[in-house]
Every structure is written in C-alpha cells, then in structure tokens.
C-alpha cells in the first residue's frame, strides 16, 4: 500500500470508529480481515506471509490506535505462526478459524461489560452520554428492557453523526431522552446522576483516549461530584503511553474576516483516569489505583 492508500484506510477506520464506536469497529475489522482472506487469490507461502505482515502492521498503526483490535491482531499473529510453513490453502483456513475465535472472544468481552454495566443503572437516573459506543447503547437498552429500570438519558450533541445511532436506538426502545449541545451541559448538572463514557484505549500513564468532547464533560461532572463511569473491556488497556497512541492531528491555515491563522484539530480527547469514579469491565468493577 502506498502512502495515499494507507491514509485512505486510516481515514476509513476513523470514520467507522466515529459512527459505530471502537467495539463495533473492532468486530467489523476482524470480519473484514476474514472476508479479505477469503477473496485473496491463491499465492505462494512467502508472498502470503509478506501480505499478512503488511496488513497486520497497518492495523496495529492506525491513527489513533484501535487498541482492542491491536491486541487481537497480535494474538492472531502469534497463533498463526506455527502454521506458516503449511500450503497456502491450509494457512488460510487456520487464519480464518483463528480470526473467528478472536471475534467470538471479543464479543464475549463486550457482553461481559454490558452485563455488569446495566446493573449500575438505578431508578430515576439521569445519565449523560455522548458516545457512539455499542456497549453504552446496549447497556441503556438492556437496563430498560430486561431490568425494567426507569431512567432518562441526556445526550450531549457535538457531532450528530456520532449520536445518531444512540438517538435512533433510544427512540426505538422508548427510553426518554433529551439532546442538548455539549456546551450547554452546565445548565443541567444539578439534575444529572451519572456520566457514562467509553474509551478507545486506556494507557499505562493513566490516560483514557476517548471521543472528542468527553474531556469537557468529565471535567464538569468531576467538579460537580457527579459519578463518572467508564465502560471498557480489558482489551482496551494499552501497553504504550498516550504519546504513542497516534491521535490524529490536522493542522491547516484558516482565513476569516481578513485574518489568517493556524488551526489544529485532534481526532480524540485524552482524559485523566484519576477523574473516573468507576471502571466497569467484563469482570465487574475494576479498582483504580489513584
């Protein structure tokens, strides 16, 4: 892949992550890997190995890094290693099988987070969310349908594409919700009882890489002593520091009213893990060493 094609792929992954969340993107990516292998024309072993290495390297270096996907691809690489001397068709079959197992494993992780996450919702809660996270959507829906909890949701709108799926699913489920611009949150803080956030990754230097706008909401909620819940499976814990998470940064020259200036945007926020009150994983609530 040349630089242009690589940029196109990374942009595509960012777009997926923005509208579907990290978990769904990870599952779609694993399934796409399987489909790509199925559509791959028969080639010799060495070429196949090179192609797998190329794709794995690309996936592990997306901007930003999709950490659950990175972990699963690393596991896939290790498990595939022992089959690499087999004929092409056999390696492909093993690769497909391993990827299916990774997909199933990830789905189990997500299911675990949802099972524990929905338990924290209480009667008459007013929960803030601004995420496209599949986990948060499922937690809200299942707490309503299975646990019969009566609660409301305050959706913070910064980019409608990101909250579209949440709005759609809450409407379908009949959960009461209100959408407010993210910058108007301060007016509603007295009535809010919880903030739910998702994460792209959690780094060893105690940072959470998360959706743009989350840092502001977390800051406001923390100052107003509103409990903040991070719903994240254990595969989201990264081995590398925040500076190595490849947060996508674009800088451009802007002109407005005869003024020109440099303008920079970042694809994701970083939030201090110390501001989080509860971390819900597939194994239940994790303890944070502050």
């Amino acid at each position: 892949m040349n630089v242009n094609e690589r940029e196109v792929l990374y942009k595509l992954i960012r777009e997926h992550e923005e509208v579907m969340g990290v978990s769904r993107t990870t599952m779609v990516a694993l399934e796409s890997y399987r489909q790509a292998l199925k559509n791959l024309k028969s080639i010799d072993n060495q070429t196949f190995k090179d192609l797998v290495i190329e794709l794995n390297t690309l996936i592990k270096n997306t901007e930003p890094k999709i950490i659950p996907l990175t972990h699963l691809i690393e596991e896939f690489e290790i498990e595939l290693q022992i089959y690499l001397e087999n004929p092409f068709e056999q390696i492909r079959d093993h690769a497909l099988r391993i990827l299916s197992q990774k997909l199933a494993r990830y789905e189990n992780c997500i299911q675990g987070v949802i099972d524990h996450g929905m338990q924290v919702i209480e009667e008459n809660d007013l929960i803030i969310s601004q995420s496209s996270s599949l986990v948060i959507r499922s937690v809200l829906k299942r707490a309503h349908s299975e646990l019969k909890r009566k609660f409301r949701v305050l959706i913070l709108d910064q980019n409608f594409i990101r909250i579209k799926q949440l709005v759609k699913e809450l409407s379908q489920e009949g959960i009461e919700f209100l959408v407010v611009p993210e910058y108007n949150l301060s007016h509603l803080l007295k009535t809010v009882t919880k903030l739910f956030i998702g994460a792209v990754s959690i780094t060893p230097d105690k940072k959470i890489i998360t959706t743009v706008g989350t840092a502001n909401a977390v800051g406001l909620c923390h100052l107003n002593r509103i409990p903040i819940y991070l719903l994240a499976n254990s595969l989201k814990f990264a081995h590398r520091m925040v500076s190595e998470q490849h947060i996508y940064r674009v800088e451009s020259q802007r002109a407005c009213d005869h003024l020109t200036y440099r303008y920079a945007t970042y694809s994701h926020d970083q939030v201090d893990l110390n501001l989080i009150d509860h971390v819900i994983t597939e194994k239940g609530e994790a303890t944070i060493q502050k």
């Binding site: 595509l12 796409s32 797998v52």
Partner: peptide, 9 residues
Amino acid sequence: LAKLFSVQL
C-alpha cells in the same frame, strides 16, 4: 490483502 481488507471495511 491490505486492499481487500480496506475494500471490505
């Protein structure tokens, strides 16, 4: 393979 993956996504 990388292009096939990109297309599937």
